[in-house]
């Protein structure tokens, strides 16, 4: 790791100011950032720890679930309110990494990072979430701009994420065998915004919507409706764990399982 200056501000405005410095980096749970720093893939001048900004917490209303950016995966997974409102979201959080990763990793960090193999982006896109920052509210549809890239500006801090409550939803994850991240993760939802299905882990451009499946499911919400519907292998990632063709096939299989799981 390169050395850096460490700050732990107590107010959002101070954090935003600190992040205005060249090569400043926000630190949430550190479950991605610290491994990256250890590999010396990133050389921040200042690391701004968001832990003291009061950004964690869960609010459930009649039609939405709002989660503070610094809320850990473990907290989301264990939340009785979320389990009631969007059980698929609690289950997704409970399936990220391992117990120790879930104890520290946060929803804000996951969405800011937008790892193409991460789980939360699938939920945000499929549920039509709104990502709120110190500056604005961003719709998921325009938030994810490609692998590891988002609509966030350098000094923009996610403060919370809001999910409309769907009628039914499920997330099914097929794990990359070594890293245990998603090799194919499908979040299927039927909600206020209609039927939406988001796929993570496999697309070259990061999380994407499986629109052909959405169309089929809109008229017939059942796994059988997805028979014969597939994604093209052209935009799939390929590596030692699976070819693009295999991943494209898995998207079809996991999509069906997600619909079945959603009931």
């Amino acid at each position: 790791m390169y050395n850096f200056e460490y700050q732990k501000p107590g107010a959002l405005a101070d954090a935003v100011k600190a992040l205005g410095a060249a090569d400043a980096k926000a630190l949430a749970g550190g479950m991605t950032l610290i491994p990256v720093l250890k590999q010396r893939l990133n050389q921040p001048s200042v690391v701004v720890d968001l832990a003291k900004l009061g950004l964690s917490g869960i609010t459930v209303t009649g039609d939405s679930v709002t989660i503070g950016a610094m809320t850990t995966h473990a907290t989301v997974a264990a939340s009785a309110d979320i389990k009631r409102a969007i059980p698929a979201l609690a289950a997704l959080a409970g399936g990220i990494g391992d117990i120790q990763v879930r104890a520290r990793g946060t929803i804000g960090g996951s969405l800011a990072n937008n790892d193409p193999a991460a789980c939360y982006p699938a939920a945000a896109l499929a549920l039509g979430a709104t990502i709120t920052t110190n500056k604005r509210a961003i719709k998921a549809d325009v938030y994810f701009t490609g692998m590891f890239t988002t609509a966030l500006a350098a000094d923009e801090v996610i403060t919370s994420v809001s999910f409309p409550i769907p009628a039914k939803a499920a997330y099914v994850k097929f794990k990359q065998p070594a890293s245990r991240y998603a090799m194919v993760g499908v979040f299927a939802a039927k909600g206020p915004a209609g039927v939406r299905m988001a796929v993570t882990g496999s697309g070259q451009g990061g999380v994407f919507r499986f629109t052909a499946a959405e169309a089929a499911l809109a008229s017939n919400w059942s796994a059988a409706a997805l028979n014969g519907i597939s994604v093209s292998a052209d935009n799939m990632m390929s590596d030692i764990h699976g070819s693009a063709v295999y991943r494209a096939h898995l998207v079809g299989v996991i999509a069906k399982r997600a619909v079945t799981a959603a009931g």
Partner: peptide, 20 residues
């Protein structure tokens, strides 16, 4: 599986890719 690519780089060079 320890896998090398055609360029002689070890593709399964960490626990992220070498499945323990």
């Amino acid at each position: 599986h320890a896998v090398y690519d055609a360029q002689g780089q070890l593709l399964s060079g960490s626990f992220m890719d070498y499945t323990m």
